[in-house]
Design a protein around this nucleic acid. Structure first.
Lengths: 228, 228
DNA sequence: ACCTGAACACCGTTCAAGT
DNA sequence: ACCTGAACACCGTTCAAGT
C-alpha cells in the first residue's frame, strides 16, 4: 500500500552546480594531482555521468581555469600598512608560497595559463601600490613584481618536484659520484639534504629583497635627474 | 632475370636506436609541445609501429627523462675564470635561461622530475667550485644555487606561459579594469607589455646577485668567528 | 530542463604472433 | 632478433536520445 506521497528517488539528489563541480575538482587535484582530473573520475565523485558536467562547463580546460581562480581566492593579502615595504612584500610572497604549497596541483595549472584570474589582479594592484609608495618608478615596480613572482614560483616548483623523489636515494647518489670529477658535490652532499627547504626559501627571498632595495637606494632619483 | 644479389627491401631501413628515438622525440616536443609526444605520433615520425619503440625504451616516461639529459648536454658552462664570481654566475644562469627557452618543452619536463640527469651534476659542481672559491660556506653555497635556480626557472616559466597568450588582449583588459579598484594597474597597464621580457630577466638576476653579494660581505667571516 | 548511453577518435601498454 | 596487429583499459567530447 504505497502512500501517494512517498518518494522513491534514491536521495534528494543534490543539484549539480558550477561551484560544486569546482570544489570536487579541486579536492581531486589536491589529493591525486592534475592528471587525476578526468571528466569520468570527476563525474564519479559527483555521482553523475560524465556527460552531465557538460551542462555546466564547456570543456575540461574551463574547469582547470576555474580552479586557479578558486585557489587564488585564499590569497588575502593585506599586510599591516605600518610595516616597511620590504616586510610587506616579504609577507605577501610568503603567503603566495604557502597557498601554492597548500594546493599542490595549482602550480601546474598556473604555469600553462598565466594568471588572468580575477583574484590575481587584486594582488598585483596591492603590490603596485606598495612599490609606488616606496618610490619605485612604474616600470621598475612591474619589473620588481616579475622578479619576486619568478623566484616564488620557481622555488615552489622545485620544492614540489623534490617532494616526489626519494631523498635518501638522491643523497647517497651524490655521495658516490667520482670524487675527482665532483669534489665539491661529494664533500657537500649532506648540505643538499636541505635543498629547497623553507629556510632556503626565506633566505633567498630576503636576498632578492636586499638586492632590490640596494638598487633603489643607489639609483638616481627620478626627480629632475640629468643625463650626464 | 633477377640477379642473385638484388635487394628488394624498400630502403636500407635505418635501424632504430635509442639516440634516434630521443632525437625525434625532442624535435616533436620542441615543435608541438610535450603533449604531442605520443608513442603513436613518435612511431609515425620514425616510420615504425608504436610497439617497435618498446624494444628500446621501457615506457614513455623513460623517453621524457632521456630528453632532459639530451637538452642539458647543451649546457657547456665554462665562463672565463678571471671574471668575478658574480659575473660567472650571471653568465651561467643566463646560459641556462637560454637553453630553457630554446627547448620550450624542456621546462615542463624538469618541473615534474627534478634534475637527476648526468649533465646537471657537472653544472652544480662548477657552481659549487665558484662559490667556495668566492668564500661561501658549504651550506650557503647550496642555498645560493637553489635561489638562483629558482629565479631562472620561475622566470622562464612565466615567459613561456606569456608566449601562449594574446598580449594585446591582456593589455586592453588591464586598461579597462575599474579604475577606482585598480588605479595603479590601470595607470601602469602599458608597462605590463614588457612583463617577463629579457630585460626583466637580466635586471632581476642582477638584483638577486647584488643581494647575495651584500649578504656575503656583511656576514661575519667564517675564520675564527666568535659567537657573541 | 536536465541527465544519459553509445559512439568516435584518441591515449599507453600487454600479449601473442609474425618474419 | 626485431618488428607488428589486435586488444585492453583508459581519455575528452559529440550526438541523439531518454525523462
Amino acid at each position: 500500500m504505497p502512500s501517494p506521497k512517498r518518494q522513491r528517488k534514491p536521495a534528494p539528489r543534490r543539484q549539480l552546480t558550477v561551484p560544486a563541480i569546482l570544489d570536487a575538482a579541486l579536492k581531486l587535484v589536491d589529493n591525486e594531482g592534475l592528471d587525476a582530473l578526468t571528466m569520468r573520475r570527476l563525474a564519479d565523485e559527483l555521482d553523475a555521468s560524465p556527460m552531465s558536467l557538460y551542462r555546466y562547463i564547456r570543456t575540461r580546460d574551463e574547469i582547470v581555469e576555474g580552479l586557479a581562480d578558486l585557489a587564488l581566492e585564499q590569497l588575502d593579502i593585506q599586510p599591516p600598512a605600518d610595516l616597511t615595504w620590504q616586510e610587506q612584500l616579504r609577507q605577501i610572497f610568503t603567503g603566495i608560497h604557502d597557498v601554492l604549497l597548500a594546493h599542490p596541483g595549482l602550480i601546474h595549472i598556473l604555469e600553462h595559463q598565466p594568471v588572468t584570474a580575477e583574484h590575481a589582479f587584486t594582488a598585483v594592484e596591492r603590490l603596485l601600490a606598495i612599490l609606488r609608495k616606496a618610490g619605485f618608478s612604474g616600470s621598475d615596480a612591474v619589473a620588481t613584481i616579475a622578479a619576486l613572482e619568478s623566484y616564488t614560483f620557481g622555488f615552489t616548483l622545485q620544492q614540489r618536484a623534490r617532494a616526489g623523489t626519494d631523498q635518501h636515494d638522491h643523497l647517497t647518489r651524490l655521495q658516490h659520484l667520482p670524487p675527482d670529477q665532483f669534489p665539491n658535490t661529494v664533500e657537500l652532499a649532506n648540505e643538499f639534504g636541505t635543498w629547497a627547504s623553507e629556510t632556503h626559501f626565506a633566505h633567498g627571498l630576503q636576498r632578492l629583497l636586499t638586492g632590490i632595495q640596494h638598487d633603489l637606494s643607489h639609483s638616481t632619483t627620478p626627480v629632475r635627474a640629468h643625463v650626464s
